[in-house]
Structure formats: C-alpha cells, structure tokens
Amino acid sequence: MQIKVRLHGVFRIGRFKEEVRDVPSGMTARAVVEQLQIPTRQVGTVLIGGVHAGIDDQLPDGAVLSILPILGGG
C-alpha cells in the first residue's frame, strides 16, 4: 500500500519534508519511525489523517502520517 509521510522539525534534517512511500499492508507508525531511523524516544505527536494517533496504530492504505518530535524545553 501507499502512504504519505510528513516529517516536522528536526526529523527533516537528512531526511525529507514529505514523501510517498510503498509499505506493507498493516504497517504501524512505529515501523515507519524505525524504518526512517528516528529514535522512538524523540517522537512526540503522531497524527494519522490529521488525528492524534498512537505510535502502534496501524496505517490504512493511503494514510497521511505526520511525525513530530517531542519538545520539552522551557
């Protein structure tokens, strides 16, 4: 299946802003994160189709997956 991955913030450095990717059916957001070699501890917000999702949620065909880094500084 095809999904669109949107990266935000520091995750874009050395990767991309937006990319259409072919992935196996039933793939989770976590698997995409690992494929992109993003450390899981750095992942903050995960949106699937613009809606807050869990990192272990499965991606439907045609999903738009947005991955944002976790920001904790003040």
Partner: peptide, 23 residues
C-alpha cells in the same frame, strides 16, 4: 495527547539545546 506517550522526562532539546530567539 502531546506527552502521554513520553518515554523520557525531556525532549529533543536535550540534543538541540535552546537558542535565544526560540523562547
């Protein structure tokens, strides 16, 4: 929603620091 899944007490600022303009 933003922090429920946090693994560590701090975020990417651990690696990136914080410059003058962002705060």
């Amino acid at each position: 929603q933003l922090y429920g899944g946090a693994i560590e007490p701090r975020g990417v600022e651990q690696e990136l620091g914080n410059p003058s303009f962002t705060p």
